[in-house]
């Protein structure tokens, strides 16, 4: 369940995670809101951080501008 497909498109689980980040949250919060296993959320958030869709500060993940736009598309 990677978050970014082979052609750069966001997967369903990526959209779920981005939607759950309306406010800064921990990986545990995202897992609870999306009903995804915690390991998938951690791996997915890392992937989206590499893609600069999400950033992390003090264990809280938040959307970047790109992440906000991508989540709405």
């Amino acid at each position: 369940m990677a978050c970014i497909g082979s052609q750069g498109e966001l997967t369903e689980s990526a959209h779920k995670m981005l939607s759950s980040l309306a406010r800064p949250s921990t990986a545990e919060d995202v897992a609870e809101r999306t009903s995804l296993p915690l390991f998938r959320v951690r791996a997915g958030l890392r992937e989206m951080m590499e893609a600069k869709l999400v950033e992390m500060e003090q264990s809280l993940y938040r959307l970047t501008e790109s992440g906000r736009s991508a989540g709405q598309s």
């Binding site: 978050c3 951690r42 791996a43 890392r46 992937e47």
Partner: peptide, 13 residues
């Protein structure tokens, strides 16, 4: 098959 995963992603489980 679910993307790149690290062992540390399972911490707590």
């Amino acid at each position: 098959t679910h993307g790149k995963i690290r062992l540390e992603d399972f911490r707590g489980s």
